[in-house]
Design a protein around this nucleic acid. Structure first.
Lengths: 334, 334
DNA sequence: TCATTTTGAGTTAGCGTTAACCCAGAAAAT
DNA sequence: ATTTTCTGGGTTAACGCTAACTCAAAATGA
């Protein structure tokens, strides 16, 4: 059996079925008035010729690609993968395909992606945890027809958003408060570079002060949201500040990196050092000791974002917000 | 600033620049003969009008989409994510975009994806660890112009492949051998449903017998390649067979699920039960005790597959194989 | 019986690009 | 001085599909 050389087109089907192209098109779309006989007949020919509509041609005239893009800083981060799963599942049901755009924690690459992702490629874009500043991000997304951001606020006319229910810095402050209540007095913090869980350190310190928790700017570090960065940062932070009895990390990967660094320095967890993460990835519950962290329903963050995007893609440009809850899951690392 | 209503087309640029459309097209592609003056001028107009080529129109005439699809059974499995990262990185450099197709460990969905992914959508497809039988898979990929499979063999005329260097069942037998050498005598096995690491149990038992290792069909179970499935399966297997002093799992997620089940049944690892996984995902090295497993370079599996696919996309349909090595990483779970 | 509506199609005109071919003027070769 | 070659473009015709309009025949109503 030799490979089919030419793909059948609408015209081929029409000719073979003895009808006009529009009739075939109508059968495919289920629109217009077609007699049952004709419909049946055309369907048979379509099957016989293994006809598949040409997406490019269709897009050219309808201006719809039935594709959306998911822009993410790191596809290997399980947090994003679960969100992506929700997005993919939702759009699959709606007949859309998802294009993946991975910036690899590289802001320049994220810019290039958003710039390249022209509206002739996708009907809409979900931008997940952008690492760009507003000044960089906003001009790039102004050109897109439909945008939804996850973990990022946006001027209302530009797109809808899915964010946490809580104000910025909530997780860090709540974590600090909990640690203080369990007797910790010198609390370090590993901040993330530009993400929703990154924290304005001034505000953070101010909040801690108002809770009578000790504050020391050199206890606070910043790193990329990866395991390796957490490990490297934790190593330095813990070596330089052996007085710390707790560390809060911006997400689980970083927390687990810090935990590994702590263990290597002979610290017992949680006796010598308590650690709190964020995101509640699977690994958080599987390590020893299991990691205290914040849980949010990542899959449904994905479906919420997808639903908001679909609305915009279909022309309803009303601004919408969906919020998810962050719940502190207390495990044995604290 | 109001949203731009109409996107500029080639014709707009041509009119504004006072040249023909072909001249603009040539400037964009850097082909044909264009004077420097004209080139500069056209470039300015392109920038001024923020012209971006319409992909659908281009695709319609060139028959190239500059997109490839990555078909994967479970996007939340870190093993696949790292491969995807390699694929994405490679194709990004080559000017291609990657479409994600996630079958969610559902063979019917995988079929639907492969069927829907017509060549008018993508220039090629990487099928990663297909869960379909040959009878199901082959007819589906026959229709595609360019195919590469990962962890799956293929009739040579259909596509290139990236697989392990070792024969089927190698990992399981090697693991069993190692366990036997370290004194384990009753070795359980949790097989995966249809994947490269799934094993023909008859062959497996035969190999073990030839090594004088005890064999017992009821020590061998099969499950989906997820943590939860591993946990559930491990729970049953270990409860029914307390005599087991080692378990080999098809991949790390399953191994970690089994490990959790073992710990919950009060077993000490590795004293009471040794566990071996596969894939060496990050989590494997982070749990306590760290998991003995097989390591392969997942990122480069991705780039190898991408490279092979690009070759086919560009018209070179020679069959190629790339192989990766599986190395046993001995950690404290054994 | 004749006017009106409904049914079941067909026709026309692009959508925005690029491939393939054409061509006038200038420069170079004979 | 004439022919040839090169330079710097332009023209035309698809690619495969759908939106919008048209229209004959059949069914319905007065």
């Amino acid at each position: 059996m030799t490979r089919k050389l030419q793909k059948a087109t609408l015209a081929d089907v029409a000719r073979e079925a003895g009808v006009s192209m529009m009739t075939v098109s109508r059968v495919i779309h289920g629109t217009g008035r077609i007699s049952d006989d004709t419909r049946q007949h055309v369907r048979q020919i379509i099957e016989k010729l293994e006809y598949r509509p040409n997406r490019a041609a269709r897009t050219l005239v309808t201006k719809r690609t039935n594709m959306i893009a998911f822009v993410v800083p790191d596809i290997t981060n399980p947090y994003f993968t679960e969100i992506l799963q929700g997005v993919e599942e939702f759009f699959w049901r709606e007949g859309y395909n998802v294009m993946l755009a991975n910036s690899n924690e590289n802001p320049e690459r994220e810019k290039a992606l958003l710039d390249q992702l022209e509206s002739t490629m996708v009907d809409g874009v979900i931008v997940c945890a952008s690492r760009l500043s507003d000044d960089e991000l906003i001009p790039l997304i102004e050109k897109h027809a439909a945008i939804v951001t996850v973990n990022r606020n946006l001027p209302h006319h530009l797109g809808s958003v899915v964010t946490t229910l809580h104000p910025r810095g909530y997780r860090a402050v709540l974590a600090a408060k909990y640690l203080y209540e369990t007797g910790r007095r010198r609390i370090g913090y590993v901040n993330l570079v530009r993400s929703i869980s990154s924290v304005n350190l001034e505000m953070f310190m101010h909040e801690l002060e108002s809770l009578n928790i000790a504050v020391n700017p050199s206890w606070y570090a910043t790193c990329k949201p990866t395991w390796q960065a957490g490990y490297d940062t934790g190593k330095v932070l813990l070596a330089e500040h052996p007085e710390l009895d707790a560390v809060i990390a911006g997400n689980d990967l970083v927390a687990l990196g810090v935990m590994r660094a702590a263990v290597e320095q002979g610290l017992r967890i949680p006796q010598d050092l308590a650690i709190i993460g964020g995101d509640d990835i699977l690994m958080a519950s599987q390590v020893t000791p299991p990691l205290t962290t914040f849980r949010s329903d990542k899959y449904s963050i994905g479906t919420m974002a997808a639903e908001l995007l679909l609305r915009r893609v279909e022309g309803d440009l009303t601004y919408c917000e969906h919020h998810y809850d962050d719940v502190l899951i207390i495990r044995e690392s604290t």
